[in-house]
């Protein structure tokens, strides 16, 4: 099972990103643990400078703006 972390202080786009991850996992029938990281320190420690950031299994794959849906599917199935 993959662990996806969504980094963001709680802005609208961060919530939208989290929802995108959940929707994509449902659609692909994957079991994914989604964790939302809102603490500024943890966000910075992960190397995210523009939020929302997305990490899959500890590896940062995206930062800044909503992720592209097709790429998101790719990260989840990789």
């Amino acid at each position: 099972m993959k662990t996806v972390k969504v980094y963001g202080p709680g802005c609208k786009r961060c919530e939208a990103t989290e929802q995108m991850v959940r929707d994509a996992a449902d659609r692909l029938g994957l079991e994914v643990a989604v964790e939302k990281v809102t603490d500024a320190k943890s966000i910075a420690m992960a190397g995210v400078m523009s939020t929302p950031g997305v990490a899959v299994d500890g590896k940062l794959v995206h930062a800044g703006g909503l992720p592209d849906a097709a790429k998101l599917d790719g990260w989840l199935t990789a």
Binding site: G8, P9, C11, A40, K41, V48, M49, S50, T51, G64
Partner: peptide, 15 residues
């Protein structure tokens, strides 16, 4: 550089 004020804290720390 595009950045929104909501991410000024991680950006500050990153810099």
């Amino acid at each position: 550089t595009p950045f929104c004020s909501c991410s000024s804290v991680p950006l500050f720390i990153g810099f």
